[in-house]
Measured scan of single mutants.
Amino acid sequence: NITNLCPFDEVFNATRFASVYAWNRKRISNCVADYSVLYNFAPFFAFKCYGVSPTKLNDLCFTNVYADSFVIRGNEVSQIAPGQTGNIADYNYKLPDDFTGCVIAWNSNKLDSKVGGNYNYLYRLFRKSNLKPFERDISTEIYQAGNKPCNGVAGFNCYFPLRSYGFRPTYGVGHQPYRVVVLSFELLHAPATVCGPKKST
């Protein structure tokens, strides 16, 4: 009989979020998941679920829940969905086509923008091939755009693969920082350890 609540607040209220190319993952297990707390949290810009209804989450049990978190621009949030393409979905964070879970995003301009620009948040701009679902690539190898080998030196046709967002408070909404948490639900042939409040007695 599990009684402790799942530590969703640790994920959602973290002081610093990860850059999207180096997205953070927390495994959540052996706890009671009260999703209504999240669902009623006012400032969400997006709360979209795939393969599961957000209002039914509290009735369900899962083997594991993974909480992935990172920061992207407002106009990139739409790429955090199954079957998407674009710089983020291709080179930074890719969801599987059969994704079961929820994508939760909110504007973090007050936290993550600075006058003069916040350059701490990076994304991958160049990559030889697209990421596989949930693949994480933190390499900083110089990207070779031409035929000539770069030998690890940036220059003509040789690019550092990461780019900084440089968030400023005055940017338009599409270019403002958004914090994103992706909850993915794993249902294995194993005992369920993460259940909603109704199922955990």
Score class of each variant (00 low, 15 high):
residue 3 T to M: 07
residue 4 N to T: 12
residue 5 L to D: 10
residue 5 L to M: 10
residue 6 C to L: 01
residue 7 P to M: 08
residue 7 P to S: 10
residue 7 P to G: 09
residue 7 P to W: 05
residue 8 F to H: 02
residue 8 F to S: 02
residue 9 D to R: 11
residue 9 D to G: 11
residue 9 D to T: 12
residue 10 E to S: 09
residue 11 V to R: 02
residue 12 F to G: 03
residue 13 N to K: 05
residue 14 A to P: 00
residue 15 T to R: 09
residue 15 T to L: 04
residue 15 T to C: 01
residue 17 F to T: 02
residue 17 F to R: 01
residue 17 F to S: 04
residue 17 F to V: 04
residue 17 F to A: 03
residue 18 A to K: 07
residue 19 S to V: 01
residue 19 S to D: 08
residue 23 W to Q: 04
residue 25 R to G: 03
residue 25 R to M: 02
residue 26 K to L: 07
residue 26 K to Y: 06
residue 27 R to I: 13
residue 29 S to A: 11
residue 29 S to D: 09
residue 29 S to R: 10
residue 32 V to M: 09
residue 32 V to I: 12
residue 33 A to G: 07
residue 33 A to F: 15
residue 33 A to V: 13
residue 34 D to I: 03
residue 34 D to M: 06
residue 37 V to P: 06
residue 38 L to P: 03
residue 38 L to H: 01
residue 39 Y to K: 15
residue 39 Y to H: 14
residue 40 N to P: 08
residue 40 N to G: 08
residue 41 F to M: 14
residue 41 F to I: 09
residue 43 P to H: 07
residue 43 P to V: 03
residue 43 P to D: 10
residue 44 F to P: 11
residue 47 F to K: 04
residue 48 K to R: 14
residue 48 K to N: 12
residue 48 K to G: 03
residue 50 Y to K: 01
residue 50 Y to Q: 03
residue 51 G to M: 01
residue 51 G to P: 00
residue 53 S to E: 15
residue 54 P to I: 15
residue 55 T to D: 15
residue 55 T to A: 14
residue 56 K to I: 07
residue 56 K to N: 12
residue 57 L to P: 03
residue 57 L to K: 03
residue 57 L to D: 04
residue 57 L to H: 03
residue 59 D to W: 05
residue 59 D to L: 05
residue 61 C to K: 14
residue 61 C to N: 14
residue 66 Y to S: 07
residue 67 A to L: 13
residue 68 D to Q: 02
residue 69 S to E: 02
residue 72 I to V: 15
residue 74 G to A: 07
residue 74 G to H: 05
residue 75 N to H: 11
residue 75 N to A: 12
residue 76 E to F: 00
residue 77 V to H: 02
residue 78 S to G: 11
residue 78 S to F: 05
residue 78 S to H: 10
residue 79 Q to M: 03
residue 80 I to A: 02
residue 80 I to M: 02
residue 81 A to L: 03
residue 81 A to I: 02
residue 81 A to W: 03
residue 81 A to H: 02
residue 82 P to K: 03
residue 83 G to T: 05
residue 83 G to M: 09
residue 83 G to V: 04
residue 83 G to C: 08
residue 85 T to V: 10
residue 88 I to W: 01
residue 88 I to N: 02
residue 88 I to D: 02
residue 88 I to R: 02
residue 89 A to V: 05
residue 89 A to R: 02
residue 90 D to R: 11
residue 90 D to G: 04
residue 91 Y to T: 04
residue 92 N to V: 02
residue 93 Y to F: 04
residue 93 Y to D: 02
residue 94 K to T: 06
residue 95 L to I: 12
residue 95 L to P: 02
residue 95 L to W: 00
residue 97 D to G: 07
residue 98 D to H: 09
residue 99 F to G: 00
residue 100 T to G: 01
residue 101 G to K: 00
residue 102 C to N: 00
residue 104 I to Q: 00
residue 104 I to S: 00
residue 105 A to S: 11
residue 106 W to L: 05
residue 106 W to V: 05
residue 107 N to D: 05
residue 108 S to V: 04
residue 109 N to F: 06
residue 109 N to H: 13
residue 110 K to C: 07
residue 110 K to T: 11
residue 111 L to H: 13
residue 112 D to Y: 00
residue 113 S to W: 03
residue 113 S to Q: 05
residue 114 K to L: 10
residue 115 V to C: 08
residue 117 G to C: 05
residue 118 N to M: 06
residue 119 Y to N: 14
residue 119 Y to P: 15
residue 120 N to S: 13
residue 120 N to M: 09
residue 120 N to P: 11
residue 121 Y to N: 06
residue 122 L to E: 15
residue 122 L to M: 15
residue 123 Y to K: 11
residue 124 R to S: 03
residue 124 R to W: 02
residue 125 L to W: 13
residue 125 L to I: 14
residue 127 R to G: 06
residue 129 S to Y: 08
residue 130 N to S: 13
residue 130 N to H: 14
residue 130 N to W: 06
residue 130 N to E: 12
residue 131 L to H: 02
residue 133 P to R: 01
residue 134 F to N: 09
residue 135 E to Y: 04
residue 136 R to L: 06
residue 136 R to N: 05
residue 136 R to V: 05
residue 136 R to D: 04
residue 136 R to K: 11
residue 137 D to K: 01
residue 137 D to N: 06
residue 137 D to F: 01
residue 138 I to E: 14
residue 139 S to V: 05
residue 140 T to M: 10
residue 141 E to Y: 07
residue 142 I to L: 14
residue 142 I to K: 07
residue 143 Y to Q: 10
residue 144 Q to E: 13
residue 145 A to F: 11
residue 145 A to T: 12
residue 146 G to M: 06
residue 146 G to E: 09
residue 146 G to V: 06
residue 146 G to C: 06
residue 147 N to C: 10
residue 150 C to L: 05
residue 150 C to D: 06
residue 151 N to K: 14
residue 152 G to E: 12
residue 152 G to T: 09
residue 153 V to T: 14
residue 154 A to D: 15
residue 154 A to Q: 14
residue 155 G to A: 10
residue 156 F to C: 11
residue 156 F to E: 15
residue 156 F to Q: 15
residue 157 N to Q: 12
residue 159 Y to A: 11
residue 159 Y to I: 11
residue 161 P to Y: 01
residue 162 L to H: 04
residue 162 L to D: 04
residue 163 R to G: 12
residue 165 Y to L: 04
residue 165 Y to A: 04
residue 166 G to D: 14
residue 166 G to H: 12
residue 168 R to C: 08
residue 169 P to R: 08
residue 170 T to R: 10
residue 171 Y to S: 15
residue 175 H to A: 13
residue 175 H to S: 13
residue 175 H to Y: 13
residue 178 Y to T: 10
residue 178 Y to M: 12
residue 180 V to F: 01
residue 180 V to T: 03
residue 181 V to S: 00
residue 181 V to D: 01
residue 181 V to H: 01
residue 181 V to F: 02
residue 182 V to F: 01
residue 182 V to C: 03
residue 182 V to G: 00
residue 182 V to Q: 00
residue 182 V to R: 00
residue 184 S to Q: 08
residue 184 S to I: 08
residue 185 F to M: 09
residue 185 F to C: 05
residue 186 E to P: 05
residue 187 L to D: 13
residue 187 L to F: 10
residue 189 H to D: 15
residue 189 H to N: 15
residue 189 H to G: 15
residue 192 A to V: 13
residue 193 T to S: 12
residue 194 V to N: 11
residue 196 G to S: 11
residue 198 K to I: 12
